[in-house]
């Protein structure tokens, strides 16, 4: 059983516990903190553990830090998952088409992939958000734009070996359309190594979103951890906790994604090894 094997690795368990907490925070945010987290909740710059109504204190404008943390989890998780899903989808389609079609199509698609890998991803995201304007969906697209190349390369490499297999040859013999072979026979079999990469992509997406909002390019109508850190920078000397607390949340979230991802990959590797 994959689950019991995973339970034996303390790292994987820690990863899933952290991820579970993150998801709970994201789901519970509107129930526990129904008020707009961007609204004023109390006196400004209240230190943590002073007032039990505002356990983590308030920021420069008197906004509840704990509420921001909960609502920020929503943004981080949503952006991370959406951007990762988009880049895996685009990447595996591009990689499958390139690997399966071969020839000129392959050449053109791979040169485009090269071009995207040549431009620093963060600069590309920065440029797109600044040209189109910051909103949640633009941020997702901007992150996916720089993250789809990894999945594309892996999918292509996988497809190159799969397309020589017997079942693909037999699909050809029975007269299946090449596109149908590519997407119904080849792509599903090329997916596992691409999906093994997904935890790294989700983690990178969360970090990129945080960096974008830290630079003031996040969705202005949403609380983000990166935005909270940037907000705290103005009072870094007098109230460093405002920048430190959301940063810790960020580190834990990303670490949770990594650990859980490694746990899944390792347990499926041992299972395959035993079979």
């Amino acid at each position: 059983m994959t689950l019991s094997r995973m339970a034996r690795s303390p790292e994987a368990v820690a990863g899933f516990v952290i991820l579970g907490c993150l998801v709970l925070m994201a789901l519970a945010a509107p129930i526990l903190f129904p008020r707009d987290p961007l609204s004023i909740a109390g006196p400004a710059l209240l230190r943590p553990f002073q007032d039990w109504a505002l356990p983590l204190g308030t920021d420069r404008l008197g906004r509840d830090v704990l509420a921001g943390l909960f609502h920020g989890a929503r943004t981080s998780l949503a952006v991370g998952l959406a951007a990762a899903a988009a880049s895996i989808l685009v990447g595996s389609v591009v990689g499958t088409v390139a690997g399966f079609a071969g020839g000129l199509v392959d050449e053109v698609l791979m040169r485009i992939t090269d071009a995207f890998q040549t431009v620093p991803g963060f600069l590309l995201s920065l440029a797109l958000v600044s040209v189109v304007g910051p909103s949640l969906s633009v941020v997702v697209v901007a992150i996916a734009l720089s993250a789809w190349t990894g999945p594309a390369r892996i999918a292509r490499a996988e497809v190159l070996s799969i397309r020589e297999r017997d079942y693909v040859a037999s699909a050809r013999v029975i007269g299946m359309h090449p596109l149908e072979i590519a997407f119904r026979e080849v792509l599903p079999n090329a997916l596992p190594p691409v999906l093994a990469l997904s935890s790294v992509i989700v983690a990178a997406a969360i970090l990129t979103e945080a960096a974008l909002s830290f630079l003031g390019l996040g969705d202005p109508n949403r609380v983000t951890w990166g935005g909270m850190i940037a907000e705290g920078r103005a009072v870094l000397r007098s109230a460093p906790f405002l920048s430190i607390i959301p940063g810790i949340a960020l580190v834990l979230a990303v670490l949770g994604v990594y650990l859980a991802g490694e746990g899944i990959v390792e347990s499926s590797a041992t299972r395959r090894g035993n079979a």
């Binding site: 945080a210 870094l236 920048s243 430190i244 960020l250 580190v251 834990l252 650990l259």
Partner: peptide, 22 residues
């Protein structure tokens, strides 16, 4: 190293500033 890789660079920069400069 995994924990380090999870740290956002800009946040590490801020924390280092708080400790070593402020």
């Amino acid at each position: 190293s995994l924990a380090l890789y999870a740290v956002p660079g800009f946040w590490l920069a801020l924390v280092l500033t708080i400790v070593f400069s402020v």
